[in-house]
Design a binder for these strands. Structure first.
Length: 474
RNA sequence: UCCUCAGUAGCUCAAUGGCAGAGCAUCCGGCUGUUAACCGGAGGGUUGUAGGUUCGAGUCCUACCUGAGGAGCCA
């Protein structure tokens, strides 16, 4: 990709601005000038931490969020990625140059601002800045204004401008929650003694053979983008005992719902010597830890998102565990036409999850509806030792896992029943030839967890640049 | 893949088959505590594309394009 040579930018303030800025070249400065950081002894403070600096002179660096004015009084709103700050400029208290400069600010112009922090109940956030000095790094020209106004927009427009939409308070809050969710996942597994061993993203042909995969050219051959790291995680678990992989996964199904992305992130622990009960316990501990972390670190974000924290505070161990058979009878009682052997549809999942105040784990599905590698229940071979965790409030499946088949001959038989070529799974069968042990794990979809925790209508807001069936731009 | 809906000013949306409009944004003016500020004024249009019906189409019909909601699919 070639970078466009930046054109000289007109500040539009004329000669008077020179007194107010620290840059030597006011007129026609280029982007390169921004690297010449002016020497200023006043400390830069993040907006979120201004409450600890009442009465002090500080600098903030950020962008213009909005400008309100009332005659001789200006209220520019700045954002810096940590929060929003209202600044105040009285015409009588400042130079005519500064007043004119602030008055000409446009949305999303980049700035350095210096002033004294003041507590004021009238300001959003209770803190405001008495602005003394303003440096404009780039003035957004009025002839080409920032496209996303603080007013309402349609989803098509916002998705086309996703690269700018991220600057809104709401989207930034979601990304902060996502950050804490991922941090919590990594810390959780670290504390539990799990070793990160990532799976490849490029996989050979016919790797799992169930869902639709994206095909890519691999030199003179074909390859596929991974739909799950699980099979590789099993190999790692035989090496490390407790392991997990965490990366992007890809599904080429033409799903078109508020719960699906074609590219999403999944964390997949795999544990040697684990059985179904161990897997369920690990999953409920993980989800509890993630929710607790968000409640601890993201109260402001949940407030921005207007997400009621009460249902999240109810997420405590243990989670209810019900068999597929019990789930089926509950769903049928609630009016569904579902029959034994069917997988749960989206509506069925919602019916069931609304009966509980925390995630519910449904275990022992009919083996015929599940993947080839799942261990059959020794007491009822027609069901598999597997579990799906359904999030509350109708957010659907957030965890899917199972105990894996550890017997070589049974696995061979299953491959044949699923019309999968044994040659493609030679390495996977090897894991059962030398030192096979009972083992299992699960996958947890990060975006669905974030959507549930944030209380979002649609999963597309949970990832910086969502990929859906009809959208791959920007 | 199927069903439904939408596409009109930069944005969000109006307009019985009969003069294409409003709010916001932008520009100009007013206002010394605004809270998506407010008040007054100005500029801004190939009504998604291509056909068709009609005296006359943003509106009705056909096809296509681009999206959205749902179903199905989904370790």
């Amino acid at each position: 990709m070639t970078l466009r040579q930046p054109k000289p930018l007109s500040t539009g303030y004329g000669r008077s601005l020179r007194a107010c800025v620290n840059f030597n070249k006011v007129h026609g400065f280029t982007m390169a000038d921004m690297t010449e950081t002016p020497i200023d002894p006043v400390p830069v403070v993040e907006i979120a931490r201004l409450g600890q600096h009442i009465g002090e002179e500080v600098r903030i660096q950020g962008w213009v969020y909005n400008l309100r004015e009332s005659g001789k009084l200006l209220f520019p709103l700045f954002r810096d990625g940590t929060g929003l700050l209202q600044a105040v400029v009285f015409q009588k208290n400042v130079s005519p140059e500064l007043f004119a400069q602030v008055r000409s600010l446009t949305q999303e112009s980049s700035i350095h601002a210096r002033g004294v922090v003041r507590a004021d109940q009238r300001a959003p956030g209770g803190v405001e800045l008495d602005l003394h000095v303003l440096t404009v790094l780039q003035l957004v020209p009025a002839s080409d204004p920032y496209p996303i106004s603080p007013k309402e927009h349609g989803i098509d427009f916002l998705m086309d401008h996703r690269h700018l939409w991220l600057r809104s308070q709401r989207q930034a809050a979601i990304l902060r929650v996502r950050h804490q969710v991922i941090r919590a996942v990594r810390d959780f597994f670290d504390n539990e003694g799990y070793v990160l061993a990532d799976a490849p993203i490029l996989t050979p042909a016919a790797c799992e053979g169930t869902s639709t995969l994206f095909e890519v050219q691999y030199f003179d051959d074909k390859a596929f983008l991974t739909q799950s790291g699980q099979l590789y995680a099993e190999a790692a678990a035989m090496a490390l005992g407790k392991t997990y992989c965490f990366g992007p996964t890809f599904r080429a199904e033409k799903s078109k719902t508020r719960r699906h992305l074609t590219e999403f992130w999944m964390v997949e622990p795999e544990t040697a010597f684990a059985q179904l009960d161990d897997i369920m316990h690990l999953a409920e501990k993980l989800v509890t830890a993630v929710v607790a972390r968000v409640l601890e670190h993201c109260r402001n974000e949940l407030k921005t998102l207007e997400r009621n924290p009460a249902p999240l505070e109810a997420i405590q161990l243990p989670f209810p565990r019900i068999s597929y058979d019990e789930a089926l009878s509950r769903i049928q009682t609630a009016g569904s036409e579902m029959k034994w052997g069917d997988d749960l549809g989206g509506g069925d999942e919602t019916l069931l999850s609304k009966q509980f105040d925390r995630p519910v784990m449904v275990h022992r599905y009919p083996a015929s509806a599940k993947a080839f590698y799942m261990q059959p229940d020794p007491e009822r071979p027609e069901v598999a030792l597997c579990v799906d965790m359904l999030a509350p409030e109708g957010y659907g499946e957030i965890v899917g896992g199972s105990q894996r088949i550890h017997d070589l001959n049974l696995l061979r038989q299953r491959l044949e029943e699923h019309h999968l070529a044994e040659a493609d799974f030679r390495w996977y069968l090897d894991l059962r030839r030398w030192g096979s042990v009972p083992h299992g794990g699960f996958g947890m979809g990060i975006e669905r967890v974030v959507a549930w925790i944030c209380g979002l209508e649609h999963i597309r807001e949970t990832i910086p640049f969502p990929r859906t069936i009809y959208r791959i731009f920007p």
